[in-house]
Design a protein around this nucleic acid. Structure first.
Lengths: 247, 247
DNA sequence: CGCGCTGTTGAAACTTGTCAAAGTTTGTGG
DNA sequence: CCACAAACTTTGACAAGTTTCAACAGCGCG
């Protein structure tokens, strides 16, 4: 086998696993692209990265070059301030993008950590900008993704600013449920990938408070919890918690 | 005067007040643009809108068409959930952009309300996308602005999730101070444009708690407050509150 | 001049955090 | 493959911080 044949073979492998035949393309960036546009996106997204549970995809302070699309797995992002306090700013799952925080200063402003063995596609940002100058649809979709992140963050601010512990946990579980459902998994039964402490950090609560809220939901028959395995028994009941005005 | 002369005259007025000679261009979108690029941006930003205190720039649920650059004045954005609870998601001042939340679904997801008489430049979004496909610098800068909004929101999440009342207020005041300073105003003395209730909503606190925190800061000599007039007496002291680990 | 809106202050109630102890699961090395 | 350590979870009792309720003061506007 000549050198060229080897190179060609490798190139083929790469293309074979790129966007054009990724079964996430309806969730991820390539929504609505034409076949030849998709091919050009494929050329960008050539780098894959595998991570084991606990690995950092990037760290706060590192230079920013790429955004990442999650191909499989589960991540958290967190920020830290000087005195050691930190907060989980989000949990990301298959098909979602990571790294948008780095664009503004060209330095990542948070850590991204795999909560289970995961695989991501690295998308060099400058090249993405270049391509989206050529492909209108891609540009527009990318802007929507960034904007959706802003809207999502407003939702979390709402949660942290106005909800009490049990409402926060209910909102969190319903959100997870809906995201699992969108990916073809059961919306009623799933494994949490994160600890009580991480949930608490995200929700602005202590882990004990999260644990108590889980116990309470279980007492009330809203769900069955055993460690990280959750089964939602009464979705309507959880939802009602949210709209239930307080005092 | 012929019709054409009138049109020409109006066009001139518009150009005269557009980006190219706006003294905010170092704060706003046109950072780093060449003269001819700036001129093309001018053509987009032809619509101005004046608002009186209390006016809505847009409302949640309205269709999204433009983003807005604040030329003068002061705004808040807030979101609302079904049961009537709402939360202020941000305060925006001169040179900052409003409306990024609307891109994702083409419907505004929050209300933007003027807290004092204000003036904004409307920037039709589709045209902005078009221009930023042609002007690399503009595209990149716009992406940075969106990303900065995400990073800012993470900061607020941190504040809401991990800080106690006095830390939140200190962080809020220091942030305002720094933004006034960046605009050439005194960082030590300024008028709050918002009520205690609005500050509380933003910080996830009740207005009484905000009021008490102000009183406490005053007792401790950190600042002098009289109604909405604030004078910071001890910036270092306020800053120390933030890094001061709790229990 | 007084009415309404905004802001301040006090006391009691409530929610969540803190500390502590014990139970459970997971991972590792012998 | 078992044993032990480490990490995570649950639960209770108590403490701390924030909200709630209530009363009142100050300012601005008609």
């Amino acid at each position: 086998m000549t050198m060229n044949a080897v190179t060609a073979r490798l190139a083929f492998e790469v293309v074979k696993t790129a966007c054009s035949n990724c079964n996430l393309r309806e969730l991820c960036l390539p929504i609505g692209l034409e076949r030849d546009e998709l091919k050009r996106l494929d050329e960008l997204v050539s780098t894959r990265r595998r991570l084991k549970r606990g690995d950092h995809l990037y760290r706060a302070g590192q230079g920013f070059e790429s955004i990442y699309a999650i191909r499989s797995g589960f991540f958290k992002t967190d920020v830290m301030i000087e005195d050691g306090r930190d907060q989980v700013t989000g949990f990301q799952m298959t098909g979602e993008l990571l790294g948008l925080d780095g664009i503004s200063s060209e330095i990542h402003s948070c850590n991204a950590i795999a909560l289970e063995d995961s695989e991501v596609c690295a998308i060099p940002f400058l090249q993405l900008e270049g391509l989206s100058r050529q492909i209108h649809t891609l540009q527009h979709h990318f802007h929507k993704v960034m904007s959706r992140e802003i809207v999502r963050d407003h939702g979390v601010m709402m949660l942290l600013g106005t909800m009490r512990a049990e409402e926060r946990l209910a909102a969190f579980l319903l959100n997870l449920s809906q995201r699992f459902k969108a990916r073809g998994y059961s919306p009623a039964e799933f494994n949490l990938r994160m600890s009580r402490d991480e949930i608490g950090s995200y929700l602005g609560l202590k882990l004990e408070t999260v644990s108590r809220a889980f116990s309470r939901f279980q007492e009330e028959g809203l769900l069955a919890v055993h460690q990280r395995k959750v089964r939602i028994l009464n979705t309507a009941g959880l939802r009602k918690l949210l709209t239930h005005q307080r005092a």
